[in-house]
Each structure stands twice: as structure tokens, then as C-alpha cells.
Computed example of a mutant assay.
Amino acid sequence: MEVPYPTQVTELESVVADLLQGHVADDQWSPPFVGAESGFRNKAKLVVGGTKAAPTFGILDANLRGVALPECGLYEPQLAEALDRLLPAVADLGLVPYDVPTRQGELKHLIVTGSPDGELMTRFVLRSPGQLPRIRRGLGDLRSAAPGLRVVSANIQPEHKAVLEGEEEIVLGEHETLPMRLDDITFHLRPRSFFQTNTVVAAGLYRQAREWVSHIDPRSVLDLYCGVGGFALNAALAPGRARRVDGVEVAPDAVASARRSALELGVDVGFEVGDARALTDVDHQLVVVNPPRRGIGAGLCAAIESAAPDHVIYSSCNAASLARDLDALPGYRVTRSRLFDMFPQTRHHEVIVLLERG
């Protein structure tokens, strides 16, 4: 963190370029896209420590005790302010923070997401549902403390293991989604939906993909690992001919959110629940993939090679797995690439490449 930010970006670009050496030539890199070097994160995942009367928001220390992490430089300013206001309101609920060494207590984590329009989603990660009445009774006070609070939910995580959240999610208010407006698209995040944590850089990533889609101007687009519809909806809105756009995502909540956004935009995009890695039919002119860190794997690479779409757009958060997948796509060559510094002050990264058949 003591290295000047422009130097960090230059070094990060060099690391990513080295990992993709042999696939991406020097003249195929566009300038890196960067946002703010601090105050960029739209989501806070906080360990709740302290006592019932005086809880803390922060992290676990070396002894697995929750300690306060005040004035964190990661969070967007409006999110940081909301956390300060929520702390006394959470204390008033009377929930006992979970103590990892003794396995006692109820409130494990607080997960808070902020939108560009100042609205919030707050998730209470609880050991059991027994404390839900306390949160329900305190909804008014929570909203008074943080006026932008739109979605409140409880996630039940009864197990004692290093997993942040459990499978059961209970929405406690009237609203189920947090609208996230990026440029001309409003996405709808449900509590368990994935979304990029750097709003400014995510918007830049989607604009880049839309620009490439417009340039290619395909008749059909398939967005795999589509999440809440980021790439698919941008493909549907990209200038050019009318095109068929489909999206596949394993999480039903994300598909429901993507369908809602498409309906509001008035675009016809076919979002379906499914496992992208198990697909064998990818018969579209352009395939977009945005997989988790492990990449898309040999099976999906083989399906793409067999279907032979004209182009592939691959957005990756792990250049090492991207390189492995490019090795498994010998029928394609990279024509454009760009680094997006989604996670400043770290070596984590997002890189997007445009592949062309032949």
C-alpha cells in the first residue's frame, strides 16, 4: 500500500501480461481501466465481536476474537457512514455476538451492500432463527439510523466452520431486491446474488464488453455464468442489428433478478437456470463467459471448440486459469484485451479478452 498507485497498476499489468504471454501480444492490450484507489468497495463483510451491549464491526484477530475495524479505507464513503450509524442501532437489538473460541452467541456477521443511489441492503448472519423477532421489532429503528436501508434479511448459518453464510435466507421487510444502477441498466440484487464489489470498475467492464459486441454485431449472444445479467443485458442494448441474447446461471435468485431487469428495460433476453460447465450446445455467434476463479474448464472449452462461435468474450478474475483455458481453445486467437483494476491495493484483478475464430 506504500507503493504509489500508478506504479501498482503498471506492476499488476506486467504480472497479468506475463501470465498470458503467448496468448496476448503487447499491441493487443488497451490501457488499464482504473477507478479510485480507496473508498471503492460497495460491500462490507464484517465479523461482529464485542458484547451484546457494545458490539464491534470488524475482523477476527489471531486468537479468533472479533475486533473493531473502524474507519476502513476500502468502503465507499456513503457505505462507511452507514456502518457508523448502524453500529448503535444493532447494539440496541440486544443480539449476542458469536464468539468463535467458545462457540457461544448468535450474531456472526453483518453484510452490508450500498447502491450508487444511496440505498442499502443489510444481512444479519445468525447462528439460529431464534433471534429473528428482535430484528423484526427493530426494523424501524434500523431504518431511522440508516435512512437508505431498503432490504433487511437474516441468513442462518448454524455450523461452526469457516463459511460466511448458510443456505437459508429470510427476508424481513417488504423489499427483496436492492436496485444497482450502472449507466442505463438497473440490476436487482437479492441477498444471495453475486455482484462485483467495485461499482465504478464494474460499469467500465460492462461498457467495454458492450463496445466489443457492437463492433462484432453478432446475430446471437450466449452469456454463460451470467449472474444478474451484466453482460447479457449490455449485449442486448449494444448498437447494431437486432440480436438474440440468452443467459445461463446456476443460481435461481440471480436468474430471477436478471429477468426482472430485462422486463424493465423492455429487452427480450432468455435467462435460464443451468450449470454452464455442463453445457454441450453453445450454438451462438458470440459466447460470453465470466466464470469463477477456477475458469471454464476442459469440458466447456471442448463444447465451444465444437460449436465454433465466431467470437468469444472471456472475463476472468484469474489470469492463470484464463491462460489454461486459452490453451484448451486452440481454434481461437486473442485480438483485444484489457486489465480492470477491480481490487486496488492487491494483486487480484479482472481481465477481459476478445477471441476470434481462426
Rank of each mutant, 00 (worst) to 15 (best):
V163I: 10
G297R: 09
K108R: 12
V34Q: 13
S30R: 15
T113V: 07
K43T: 06
I352Q: 15
L69V: 04
G22R: 06
A256K: 14
H160Q: 11
T280L: 13
P191N: 09
D184N: 14
V245Y: 06
S115W: 07
D184L: 06
S128D: 12
F57T: 09
D61P: 00
K108I: 01
P6K: 15
A276Y: 04
G50P: 02
V282G: 09
R127W: 01
V9Q: 13
S315Y: 04
V289N: 05
A146N: 12
V90R: 08
F194G: 02
D253F: 05
D117V: 03
E159T: 09
D27E: 12
D268R: 09
D327K: 14
S306D: 10
G66E: 02
R219G: 10
G22N: 09
E249L: 06
R259A: 00
K43P: 05
A80K: 11
A146P: 08
R192P: 04
V288W: 02
A80N: 15
T197A: 11
R137Y: 01
V267E: 00
T177S: 14
K45I: 03
A298Y: 04
L46D: 06
T199N: 07
V213N: 12
E37I: 03
L74A: 07
K161L: 11
N155V: 03
I59Q: 15
V221W: 05
I111G: 02
R127P: 00
T10V: 10
E106M: 12
Q131L: 05
L322I: 01
L354R: 15
T177Q: 14
K161E: 13
I216T: 08
G118F: 02
V201D: 03
R192Y: 04
A54Y: 02
Q208G: 10
R260I: 00
S306W: 12
L12N: 00
V200T: 13
V163A: 12
Q345E: 05
P292G: 12
L286M: 07
G247R: 07
L93S: 07
L339H: 09
L164S: 08
V34A: 10
P88C: 07
V152T: 10
A276S: 07
V201Y: 06
A242Q: 10
D61I: 05
A209S: 11
